[in-house]
């Protein structure tokens, strides 16, 4: 019990500790590919600390909601991230919410961030909120149909059980899982506002989405929101990793050494994913906003096809 609790807490601190590092790694990879030296890997930590130390400037017309939302968004994202198995399954609280609840938690974070974008009453904030609402309305059902696929393969919507099932040998190669993987990657790109959906590095550009929504934030509020965004990236990478590349994941009652090995392997996987994301982002152009629905819609259709195959093939086996 105590050990389980310790590992649960370790996981919660781990995701938050590596989140800025992963973002730094993606930025560094992109910089190298552009033949720039780029900032050091730990630059995101410095940015966060600098932001947290500054005074927060809040717009005149902002309500209490504006100051409350960053913490809420952070909390919802953190709780969701804590429920995704990173290096071990069967953590103490993993049964308290399943994958559908994790998606809904992220949906709650998006809902409140969209409200914060509308709070000050500027045109940029509204623009970001409105577009985020559109992307969310497409990405969320895509995630749900991916969950259908995973749940039918593993017989559970509990992420721990799904991951444990994926580690075991009786998965095999399945078409549905391949479709789900592609769909999940597309959704992850869209949800994290990466190129080709949104550019996390832009400012003052009409195509931006997430950055427009949080334009009025500064100081500690901005730091918390940025950290939540970094955490979300870790969450999605962990999700993909624990379902599709689960090797080394310590299952329920593994020894402490196994779990530590799992943690090490997890960090390696995270680093690989970060580099891959950097390479991908450097090799593709950003889309027009109204192309994004096609892109995410394709993920929805792929995920749906995968789930449909499983629904229909249930009697055949």
């Amino acid at each position: 019990m105590i050990v389980d609790l310790a590992f649960q807490l370790l996981q919660m601190t781990l995701v938050i500790a590596v989140a800025p590092l992963l973002t730094g790694l993606v930025r560094a990879t992109k910089a190298r590919l552009m033949r720039r030296r780029g900032p050091p890997l730990i630059q995101p930590y410095r940015d966060l600390i600098r932001l947290a130390r500054k005074e927060a400037v809040v717009a005149d017309g902002a309500s209490w909601l504006f100051r409350f939302v960053p913490y809420l968004v952070f909390a919802a994202t953190w709780v969701a991230a804590a429920l995704v198995p990173t290096f071990a399954t069967g953590l103490l609280f993993s049964w308290s919410a399943d994958l559908i609840a994790i998606i809904a938690l992220l949906g709650a974070a998006r809902f409140f961030l969209a409200l914060a974008g509308l709070d000050v009453g500027t045109s940029f904030g509204g623009l970001g909120s409105s577009r985020e609402a559109l992307f969310g309305a497409l990405a969320e059902p895509a995630m749900i149909v991916i969950v259908f696929t995973l749940a039918l393969v593993a017989g559970s919507t509990q992420l721990s059980t799904v991951a444990a099932y994926m580690v075991s040998s009786n998965v095999g190669l399945r078409v549905s899982l391949g479709m789900a993987l592609v769909a999940l990657i597309v959704v992850a790109l869209a949800e994290n506002g990466r190129i080709p959906v949104d550019n996390p590095a832009t400012h003052l550009e009409l195509t931006m989405v997430h950055e427009a929504m949080i334009l009025e934030y500064s100081g500690r509020h901005l730091a918390v929101i940025e950290l939540a965004a970094m955490l979300k990236l870790v969450l999605y990478v962990s999700l993909i990793v624990c379902v599709f590349v689960p090797w080394g994941l310590a299952i329920a009652d593994a020894s402490v050494a196994d779990r530590l090995l799992g943690a090490l392997l997890y960090l390696v996987k995270l680093a690989l994913a970060g580099v891959a994301l950097g390479v991908f982002e450097s090799s593709i152009a950003k889309m027009r906003v109204f192309r994004v629905p096609d892109f995410v819609g394709a993920a929805l259709m792929l995920g749906f096809l995968g789930a449909l195959l499983l629904f229909v093939s249930r009697t055949l086996k």
Partner: peptide, 21 residues
Amino acid sequence: AASVIHRFASNALRRAPAWDC
């Protein structure tokens, strides 16, 4: 999160006109 930020980081708050780019 709120208490850590308020304990260890800045507590200052300033009201200003909206930035709006």
